[in-house]
Write a protein that binds this DNA or RNA. Sequence first.
DNA 1: CTTGTGCTTGTTACCGGTAACAGCTACAAT
DNA 2: ATTGTAGCTGTTACCGGTAACAAGCACAAG
Lengths: 355, 355
Amino acid sequence: MAITLADIASELGVSKMTVSRAINNHPLINPQTRERVLEVARRLNYQPNQHARALATNRSYLIGVVVPDLMNLYFAEVTRAIESVTRPAGFQLLISSTEEDATRELDQVEALLHRTDGLIISSVLNPTDTRGYRKLIKDGAKIVLVDRTMKDLRSPSVATDNVRVGKLATEHLINLGHRRIGHLCGDASSVSVERLEGYRQALAKRKLRYVQAQVRPCGLLESEGYAAMRSWLAEGNVPDAIFAVNDPAAIGAMQAMEEAGVRVGDEIALVGAGNIHYGDMLRTPLTTVSWSRNEMGQQAARLLIELINNESTRSKPQAIVLPPELVIRNSCGARPFAPADVSYAARFGIPAVTV
Amino acid sequence: MAITLADIASELGVSKMTVSRAINNHPLINPQTRERVLEVARRLNYQPNQHARALATNRSYLIGVVVPDLMNLYFAEVTRAIESVTRPAGFQLLISSTEEDATRELDQVEALLHRTDGLIISSVLNPTDTRGYRKLIKDGAKIVLVDRTMKDLRSPSVATDNVRVGKLATEHLINLGHRRIGHLCGDASSVSVERLEGYRQALAKRKLRYVQAQVRPCGLLESEGYAAMRSWLAEGNVPDAIFAVNDPAAIGAMQAMEEAGVRVGDEIALVGAGNIHYGDMLRTPLTTVSWSRNEMGQQAARLLIELINNESTRSKPQAIVLPPELVIRNSCGARPFAPADVSYAARFGIPAVTV
DNA sequence: CTTGTGCTTGTTACCGGTAACAGCTACAAT
DNA sequence: ATTGTAGCTGTTACCGGTAACAAGCACAAG
């Protein structure tokens, strides 16, 4: 078995308490005694039992991170940023990926809450459906929301202005001369809903009609973007420009377009959101909307540590909003798409569907 | 505070022990009693205190995962595969990224060992320098090595045949007609050393000279591949084909080439290793060597769970080797590179260095 | 010579579970 | 009636730390 406080104590003929104080740099201890204890601890390679410590102090020095998808480099980046703050502060991360699945999220959160000091969550849930989290927070759970927020929840959050994200992307496409602009929209999560709202606002502002058929349900995963775009191309009636809810969805759509022989940025303009790594190195570099993933993760980590240490001087939970900006690359194209009615179905060998 | 066993016990007028037995499906309990207990537990939303349980049983149901770089999608994939096995088995993951830094790895491992039931490690360390791990394993640490292995270590491992990886990549370049084949080599880790060995073997087999100047130290990170290639191009004397130790390094190199106006696959053939996500969607799709990340993660997870449950029937630790295969895309080019002595320095505006 | 005070150390109990063993009850066997 | 034996439940101690309080000691002040 491992070395315990008691081993060191008996070795030195002192009490466990003295050893404990030495290890924890407690002020009420003779510096010489501390040195003697630390020396023995080093010699025996003492490692405190974290479970015992957590049980006694009710502090685990663990932070749970719940993200929708670790294969999405956007979240890998946010997670790394979180770690860059939590590690120096002495916390370790319990990371779990929900695969964009709400049930899994609730399970994970429930499981993580009781073995961590607090959670950083990027929630897949519908932002209006806050019952679950509201209760947890009332019961004292320390939760910070990152990237995806929820309405009226008394917990700090860090996100970008997603309505503006949708507006920036859509307005850019309008400015390029496009009039038939579609949207691959996400799910019920806050980012999806707000970016859709931004898309609508941009259209309205420029007096363009909002056409239901031009908004295709998709999801936030690359595979979903691919599937949605593939069926859209097969059915026909594809717009000349598309704003995809996020970069993975855009990249999935891009892949579907390429398979169908559609020249991205030329025949169909495409804009994503999130500015994920490799977006600039793709066959068709992806035009996107960007904000700092680094800032996002670091701020979230700071807010959570504040919360854990009860340093929150403010009465209202802080909601940090990071400014989004357009990153223009090639996928949005320069020329508008001229022919109004090309069917891509033939390219897949699938009969076109009249909408 | 949270509900404890004692709360449930007093509510029902039974002992803590009875409640504990009910919660854990212990056989020595009256089914009716169990039902009554479970009902109250549900009603009060009892969540067992994992720290207390871990302290009493010496089992935490946590598995530590130490990977070199979570921004490397290769490891994100392996991690996801690990999780797909460990989660159904009731374990949670404590993930930490070492950023390809040996010191950080040792720190992390030390810290994780004492709060987990076992570790899955992809080690950055020099594979011959096994002192540290050897001692830990002798002291009872449950460790499975994944992707990167170490010599003579009594612990199970899952990896690919990295000598073969280097051979496959290099032979492919030779078969394409290249004679001046360089290598962006990694660090002291097992994959780096073995792939370099494969590169040498392939050259030797085809009677090509091993030229020290054509093997550039690089590292395993994208940024390192970029930096190494950039300076190589600036110095001149670049070979017509390059095998990069892994995909991130290859992609970094690719970026440096593009910035220098060098046409990848055309002027310089490039092959990576690992087949990371997006490798096929890059501006120049990356030729690479591939093996199953999924298999890798899942097998590692199974081996560790076996180890934790002491189900290891075999006396020798298992060493699983996954077969690598070549994935031919565009970065390796079709035509060999003709001119032998072009200086790329001018393109950077840097004076060429004669080697 | 007491008393007070500050510094350091020890004692006790507890955090919330679980293992090992003891004890109780009802019923069957002798 | 006694003993044995399942079958279930309770008791006690312990896992390895820490908080709160008690206590010892040296030395200065009264």
